[in-house]
Write a protein that binds this DNA or RNA. Structure first.
Length: 586
RNA sequence: GCCGAAGUAACUCAGUGGUAGAGUAGCUCUUUCGUAAAGAGCAAGUCGUGGGUUCAAGUCCCACCUUCGGCUCCA
């Protein structure tokens, strides 16, 4: 933690340095704020009618190095409001901050180094000249003043800094490595999926990608059986009344629903004027409620677990789309579990066990985040308290690390989010488990209790992968495209050395295919080296080389994508090894 | 949506107003090869789309589409 604080000091100092350099190079520019952030620092600028482009960054960096020579120390002085107003009379952003601090009764401090004066609360290195010299400017972005869309868009310059040159270089190398693993790049190279301008924000799944997708789905289905789920499918397009009942139409109409449409009727060109207005479903819950309502339900049948993986569509803003990570059409390994109030803790534990099982094959570590009652919430405080207590009990019992995020629950109930850490140490939110008392009531759902009375069930909404799309995107980057055998689109590439080996290779191809192995036969007119290269670039886990020796001895020479020679194995020996590894999901 | 950048052959990219290019992939032929790229040839482009300026536009201007980096981190 001490390290983190020191790093923040280094970076915060660099943010000042960046401000000094830009103000020097762009007279009339104003700097706004410039904090240290998770991976570096930034500084926001109002450049008037001037612009900074990526090409200017080296020049700014050079200026920073020049100015840094004159920065021996940071001097922090507390000043009066009047003095601060005078010092920053030219800078409307600093003035706004000064007025805000004056109102709050905070003391106002200024920092001065070299000839540069800034408004600052402190937190710098002692000797910038020596301590803050390993920095690099990285990128530019627009950002609103105070993060508010109604305010002016400022130019944000991002950079990073480290204590040593070694650490800086390591970080920059890691950034390069991340770029190489980019799932959008690998998605093309490995022919997994494509994005096309005919359908912005929606993936076309290519044969290889769909194999991985369906393999993830198959695994989820296997677990449905083990954990007592039943799979259902419900309509994609529903009358808006369904979403009015659930509350989604009112809460999310503009940001969730792809344009409402008039369906089955042709009364008007304006879909909202037709008497029958429909929406493309952005979530499955309302339909799940209708399935529960299908017949009279008894307490005997609870928990009742319905899994559904229908396609969902959400209107994500164009600028937020990002490959498979943020997408407009996706499927979730979604489920709705109907329970009694008394079953919350037990069912939550049951769900946590399923989470553990589902994540087991991916060698990903994860932690949990409990979101409690938000400021704006629906329902009774006592129900919330009961539910939160049940969740906490179950979390404690699970033994998995978790943090509590106060006020971060959904408006209809508390929730637990699953945060997954990938091989580069990046954290992603994937699954979520949410309690809901509201929708069952809005849909007037009831089950018959032991004593014959009718009661509202409670619902657990949960998705474990989250969306298949996002989860797969994470896996692609986690594995750098080298899927484990059970997920690999092609598990074995057969490489005959010369034409006379093709016939035998074809027979092997048939044998492996019959046994359910995903195998390809590379029988083009190229050298063995070229075939190996091709299969390695496609990240096929195993290559089976077939030449004269192999045919004589009825074996296959096995090479891994890592270049390892696994020796000569007979068909049955190798098949057994493959099947074992696939079963183990190794 | 907003700020910034990009879009040229299937892919990666070069091309600053005057005849659209390279490498890779593809196809054809030759080669039949032992653990990461054999050789030769051929074919392949509405230069994202639509307007405009100009004798002349991939290149300059305008609008739109798509993609990417950001828009949460608070002196």
């Amino acid at each position: 933690m001490e390290n983190k604080e020191q790093l923040d000091r280094i970076r915060h100092s660099c943010a000042h340095l960046l401000a000094a350099a830009v103000l020097d190079l762009y007279p009339g520019a104003h700097n706004a704020i410039g904090p240290a952030i998770e991976n570096g620092f930034y500084q926001d600028f109002d450049l008037g009618d001037k612009k900074i482009t990526e090409e200017d960054l080296p020049r700014i960096e050079e200026k920073m190095r020049e100015i840094l020579k004159t920065w021996d120390s940071f001097q922090i002085n507390e000043v009066s409001v009047e003095q601060a107003r005078k010092d920053f009379a030219h800078n409307p952003y600093k003035l706004e901050l000064i007025e805000a601090f004056a109102k709050e009764g905070k003391s106002i401090t200024e920092t001065k180094q070299g000839g540069f004066l800034d408004l600052c609360k402190g937190g710098h290195v002692h000797h910038p000249k020596n301590d803050s010299k390993h920095f690099r400017l990285l990128s530019l972005a627009g950002a609103y003043w105070k993060g508010d869309v109604h305010n002016k868009m400022l130019t944000r310059v991002y950079g990073t800094a480290f204590k040593t040159k070694q650490e800086l270089d390591d970080y920059l190398r890691m950034v390069e490595e991340t770029k190489k693993r980019d799932h959008k790049k690998l998605g093309r190279e490995l022919e997994l999926f494509l994005f096309d301008e005919t359908a912005p924000g929606m993936a076309y799944w290519l044969p290889n990608g769909l194999i991985v997708y369906n393999t993830l789905y198959d695994y989820a289905r296997e677990q449905y059986k083990n954990f007592g789920y039943q799979e259902v499918a419900t309509p994609m397009i529903n009358k808006k009344e369904l979403y009015e009942t659930s509350g989604h139409w009112e809460h999310y109409r503009s940001d969730m629903f792809i344009s409402p449409m008039s369906f089955l009727t042709n009364e008007s060109d304006d879909p909202l004027q037709g008497s029958e207005v429909f929406g493309v479903k952005p979530m499955n819950c309302p339909n799940a409620m209708r399935i529960f309502a299908f017949k009279t339900r008894s307490y005997h049948t609870l928990p009742l677990r319905f899994a559904e993986t229908s396609s969902l569509h959400r209107f994500e803003l164009s600028g937020t789309l990002n490959g498979l990570f943020r997408i407009r059409q996706f499927r979730q390994d979604d489920a709705h579990i109907f329970i009694t109030q008394d079953q919350i803790e037990e069912e939550f534990s049951h769900t946590m066990k399923m989470v553990a099982k589902m994540y087991e094959p991916f060698d990903l570590s994860y932690r949990l985040r409990l979101g409690t009652r938000p400021e704006k919430f629906m329902g009774e405080t006592k129900d919330w308290e009961h539910a939160e207590k049940m969740l906490k009990n179950a979390l404690d019992a699970s033994g998995i690390e978790y943090v509590t995020a106060e006020g971060e629950g959904a408006f209809y109930g508390p929730k637990v989010d699953i945060l997954m850490k990938d091989s580069l140490g990046r954290e992603w939110q994937t699954g979520t488990i949410q309690l809901d008392f509201q929708q069952p009531k809005r849909f007037k759902l009831e089950y018959i209790e032991k004593d014959g009375s009718a009661k509202n069930p409670t619902v657990i909404h949960r998705a474990i992968y989250g969306s298949f799309e996002r989860f797969l995107g994470i896996l692609i980057e986690h594995y750098a495209g080298k899927f484990p055998l059970w997920l690999a689109p092609v598990q074995l590439a057969l490489l005959p050395i010369a034409d006379r080996h093709v016939e035998y290779a074809k027979k092997l191809y048939q044998d492996f295919s019959k046994e359910g192995i995903r195998v390809t036969l590379q029988d083009s007119q190229s050298t063995l080296q070229a075939k190996i290269r091709e299969a390695t670039l496609q990240k096929v886990p195993y290559m089976g080389i077939i030449g004269d020796k192999e045919i004589t001895d009825e074996v296959i020479s096995i090479r891994s994508r890592e270049g390892e020679d696994l020796g000569k194995l007979s068909l049955s020996q190798f098949l057994q090894k493959l099947k074992e590894d696939i079963d183990k999901k190794a």
